[in-house]
């Protein structure tokens, strides 16, 4: 077997799309989306999976830094390939630079269908809060939890229907009293994760090695400089309706 992928359920739409697009036939082990809130548990779960894999040339980890969950992972049976991105938002936007640029414009909460739908996604938690605390208090909780965010961005990764998510995102935006915009995603980083070349945007940890901070924390000054030069492609939820409708 050439390679094996371990990935977070949260980006399953996009990764499955990248697998179809690139034509790779690597199997995928999915980890629970909820683990991203508990980096130590995520690390333990990943190490457990890695330790039980043999007879592959590479193990591809489709994750961001995920609260340092990758830090300390040991490459046992095969080299590990890790994207040098802070979190999976960069993977969905196509680059760390795009993520920094959008985030530096306004404090932004990013969404995809995965973030809306999976257990412990923002919407699931909101619905749980309504049943546990009632509508009014659930609204208050959401506003306090996300009080410092100035906008929502739904990333149009092309891997799911924006129209199917529109209403849910609009409800959330209204509760929070902030705007929602749509940003074009890009699968280029995911494609390169699957196919290579694994350039400075990726770290390759050889067999017997361990993931260190140097493998993960990108050279921020360089990335920020690139981010300043890039341009955005944003539109509002209403504009998007006109475009698509």
């Amino acid at each position: 077997m050439n390679a094996l992928i371990i990935a977070c359920q949260m980006i399953s739409d996009e990764l499955n799309q990248a697998i179809s697009r690139t034509g790779v036939d690597y199997p995928v082990i999915w980890t629970e989306a909820r683990l991203h809130e508990h980096p130590d548990r995520l690390r333990a779960s990943l190490q457990d999976e890695i330790s039980r894999i043999s007879n592959v040339r590479h193990i591809i980890l489709a994750f961001g830094c995920c609260g340092n969950a990758m830090l300390g992972l040991k490459a046992e049976g095969a080299p590990l390939i890790i994207p040098r991105v802070d979190d999976c938002i960069s993977l969905l936007l196509g680059s760390q630079a795009s993520y920094y640029r959008l985030s530096s414009e306004l404090s932004t909460y990013y969404l995809t269908r995965g973030w809306l739908e999976y257990e412990n996604g923002i919407l699931s938690e909101f619905e749980r809060n309504i049943s546990r605390y009632g509508q009014t208090r659930a609204n208050e909780i959401s506003r306090v939890m996300l009080q410092h965010y100035s906008r929502l961005i739904l990333i149009d990764t092309g891997a799911y229907s924006i129209d199917a998510c529109r209403e849910k995102v609009q409800i959330l935006a209204e509760v929070l009293g902030i705007n929602c915009e749509i940003a074009s995603g890009s699968g280029q980083l995911l494609d390169r994760l699957l196919l290579g070349p694994w350039d400075e945007n990726f770290s390759v940890i050889p067999s017997g090695g361990m993931v260190t901070r140097e493998h993960l924390w990108a050279q921020k000054a360089c990335v920020l400089k690139c981010a300043e030069k890039s341009t955005s492609c944003l539109c509002s939820l209403q504009q998007y309706r006109t475009k698509s409708g």
Binding site: E37, E125, N129, Y133, S142, M145
Partner: peptide, 9 residues
């Protein structure tokens, strides 16, 4: 994992 972020809040 019994409590969510909102419960902490």
């Amino acid at each position: 994992g019994t409590y969510f972020l909102s419960d902490l809040l």
